[in-house]
């Protein structure tokens, strides 16, 4: 697992209070991990803070799974 993936999963576990095992890369924040729309806004803010990146609203809307988040952050850093 990449460093980004590890960090993303840790943030998801902390913010959504879910089991680490459930946070697979395909997991959807809303459908699989019990988040609501406000939770996802807060998650994106946590990613921005942790990785020092800016995630504009139109990009944030497309981040619906763990995989999406990792890909976006890696794309910004790369």
């Amino acid at each position: 697992m990449s460093e980004t993936a590890e960090k993303v999963k840790k943030i998801v576990v902390e913010h959504l209070g879910v089991d680490e095992a459930k946070v697979t890369e395909d997991a959807s924040f809303i459908d699989d991990l019990g988040a609501d729309s406000l939770d996802t806004v807060e998650l994106v803010m946590a990613f921005e803070e942790a990785f020092g990146v800016e995630i504009p609203d139109d990009a944030a809307e497309k981040i619906t799974t763990v995989k999406d988040a990792i890909a976006y952050i890696d794309g910004q850093k790369g």
Binding site: L38, V41, E42, M45, E48, E49
Partner: peptide, 10 residues
């Protein structure tokens, strides 16, 4: 401003 939590108001 962007760090204000979506949970602030509720």
């Amino acid at each position: 401003h962007k760090r204000v939590s979506p949970f602030f108001i509720p």
